[in-house]
């Protein structure tokens, strides 16, 4: 394959990564934006979503799409429930203290990881894609499912944007993000908003996971890399900026894809991580976001 098509392939692969990353980072960004909580266990919600997707898809036989759809509905629900329970039992009792919640979500990370290892095992397991169409490009064939992932993620982002900006629930969330105390004085049940946002953030990670398992397999250690990448996306994109998150996810995903094809993936990650650390040091408000109040 010559350079041009090679680059196109790398870009497509990068866009798939971006699609998954954008959903996950959006969840992280929502939780941090509204609750000021850095959820270190976010990667484990992603992993849990993937492992549950495998579990649900094995419950049914027949066309792979049935199992996939079942997983797409049930896996985020279960993950959301787990997040809701941890929010009520742990984060709320800590009064959302930033440092204490970091420690607590690290604890959560280990617990979820261990439970996955115990009940799911150390193997990596695939989920069959709901359909197996290959799109024939002039230079190579490309998986139709991967294109579907990009489209599905875009649809989810649009839906989230709609909810945030055009509905009452979104207004309540934005009000809480802007000023917790004033929101409370206006009768917004801040407490329930927090619980809902935490669950929603985890569910977004789970959706991303269900989309990704037909491409890369479910494994109990799969959460860490996406967690770090989502941190990167949230930082570059600026907090609370949906547009920034999408742009940053595309930037990180595509450059990760392109560098990984032409150089080593480890080097790609090294460079990306270092660059982002520097962005955070010298431009803490991100590249697209505005300075926090």
């Amino acid at each position: 394959m010559s350079f041009g098509p090679h680059l196109l392939l790398a870009t497509l692969e990068g866009l798939v990564t971006s699609a998954v990353l954008a959903l996950m980072a959006l969840g992280l960004s929502l939780v941090f934006g509204v609750m000021r909580v850095v959820n270190v266990a976010h990667g484990e919600f992603f992993m849990l979503g993937a492992v549950l997707a495998w579990f649900f898809s094995t419950l049914v036989t027949g066309h792979p799409a049935i199992g996939f759809l079942l997983a797409l509905v049930l896996s985020p629900l279960v993950v959301g429930a787990v997040a809701l329970v941890s929010e009520r039992l742990v984060l709320r009792r800590l009064n959302y203290d930033p440092e204490a919640t970091i420690v607590a979500t690290i604890g959560l990370l280990y617990i979820i990881q261990q439970l996955a290892l115990t009940f799911y095992g150390p193997e990596a397991r695939p989920v069959q894609a709901p359909f197996s169409i290959r799109i024939a490009l002039p230079w190579f064939g490309y998986s139709g499912y991967k294109l579907f992932v990009i489209a599905a993620s875009a649809a989810m982002m649009l839906a989230t944007w709609f909810v945030l900006t055009r509905t009452r629930a979104g207004l309540v969330m934005r009000a809480t993000q802007y000023d917790r105390e004033t929101a409370q004085n206006f009768g917004i049940p801040v407490d329930r908003v927090y619980a809902g946002v935490f669950a929603l953030g985890a569910m977004l990670a789970a959706v991303a996971a269900v989309l990704v398992v037909p491409i890369s397999q479910a494994h109990y250690l799969m959460g860490l890399d996406p967690l770090l990448l989502s941190f990167i996306v949230v930082i570059i994109g600026g907090l609370g900026s949906l547009r920034g998150t999408v742009l940053a996810a595309v930037l990180i995903g595509v450059s990760d894809g392109v560098i990984s094809v032409f150089f080593s993936p480890t080097l790609a990650k090294m460079i990306a991580t270092l660059v982002v650390a520097m962005v955070l040091v010298f431009r803490p408000q991100g590249l697209f976001g505005t300075a926090p109040r």
Binding site: L108, Y110, I111, I112, Q113, Q114
Partner: peptide, 11 residues
């Protein structure tokens, strides 16, 4: 399950 021990201890 030592990861579980660490996690529970932290929380």
């Amino acid at each position: 399950a030592w990861l579980l021990v660490v996690g529970v201890a932290l929380i």
